[in-house]
């Protein structure tokens, strides 16, 4: 794959890469902050899985219940969760372990299951967990486990897709430097024709093109390409922006080259993103229309919450396509 192709080919290749990149989002080039969070989560998952190994002969329903937290971070921790030589964490000082021990104890008591903890092959448990009646019966962990086990849905998402995509929904297709993007009509604030130069503000990042007055509102114009395309593709298409797609209930507007048409989509036609990943703005991709569906609300939040000063897109992996 190479950026030496025609611009259209390059765009198609990029979109294809975007699809794959979304799937394999837990890659090493994840942002440092995200990495640390993942590490923390995987550590928690590992601790939990280690402690729970002794319960592997528990009834199936119990095992399933316990398995949930282990799936906390599937792509990263899969190999870590199934550890060949597991050790029980030392239980005394760590509050987390205590509560975990309580949790295990509660399960053992209630289910009348006595299992080896440190070495599963041994019949006698090597570590006995003292009943600690003064401590409430591990309700915090029991209560938090399901929430901790499953990554919380992003705001505005339900059942793995945005709330506006629970049923059939309408989208507007528009083009940014050759790449087709789709925005759900419910999230569309308006389309503004760029009839004059926006007013730039000094000290702003290059993707902030300036402010444009429209309909008694100052719309902040975003260079969409800098967020959704790698620099190599942006350089190939120098066409000036013609329109702004204004985000619903927001002063942010995404600059685009042309508005295409509106389409109607079934939720199943979209490959929804599975993790927030490096592109919180990406809701999913529609292969049928070769377009990326924008999570407009997430994009808006990204800018409003001050994350906009970060690099628009970590596209390192995509830039390496020409290697």
């Amino acid at each position: 794959m190479s950026w030496q192709d025609t611009p259209q080919q390059a765009i198609e290749e990029y979109l294809e890469a975007l699809l794959h990149d979304d799937m394999a989002d837990e890659s090493p080039e994840e942002a440092p902050a995200a990495q640390s969070v993942q590490k923390e989560e995987s550590l928690q998952a590992r601790q939990l899985s280690e402690s729970m190994l002794g319960l592997q002969q528990a009834p199936k329903t119990l095992a399933e219940e316990l398995a949930k937290p282990v799936q906390l971070d599937e792509p990263l921790t899969q190999s870590q969760v199934i550890l060949p030589n597991l050790k029980l964490p030392e239980a005394e000082p760590e509050p987390a372990v205590e509560t975990l021990a309580d949790f295990i104890q509660e399960i053992e008591t209630s289910q009348e299951v006595t299992q080896p903890v440190e070495e599963p092959k041994q019949e006698e448990p090597q570590v006995e967990i003292e009943p600690q009646q003064e401590v409430p019966a591990a309700t915090p962990v029991a209560a938090e486990t399901p929430a901790a086990g499953q990554p919380p849905s992003p705001p505005g998402w339900k059942d793995g897709r945005p709330v506006w995509a629970q049923e059939r929904f309408e989208c507007l297709l528009f083009k940014v430097k050759g790449l087709t993007l789709a925005v759900p009509l419910v999230e569309l604030g308006g389309i503004i024709k760029i009839d004059k130069e926006p007013t730039p503000l000094f000290g702003q990042p290059s993707w902030f093109l300036g402010m444009l007055r429209n309909n008694n509102m100052n719309v902040s114009m975003v260079d969409t390409a800098q967020w959704v395309l790698p620099p190599a593709l942006i350089e190939k298409n120098q066409d000036p922006y013609q329109l702004i797609i204004r985000i619903h209930n927001s002063t942010w507007g995404l600059a685009c080259n042309e508005v295409d048409r509106s389409i109607s989509l079934e939720p199943e036609q979209v490959r929804w993103r599975t993790t927030l990943g490096k592109r919180p703005w990406l809701a999913g991709t529609v292969i049928e229309h070769m377009c990326a569906l924008i999570d407009v609300a997430a994009f808006d939040r990204l800018l409003k919450e001050g994350h906009g000063h970060l690099e628009p897109a970590n596209l390192t992996a995509l830039n390496n396509l020409d290697d």
Partner: peptide
Amino acid sequence: PNVGNEESAKFIQGVCNKNNEL
């Protein structure tokens, strides 16, 4: 909008539309 990383972005107190100009 408060998206500027540069020190100079702090100087901007706000914007106002006056005489059809920002």
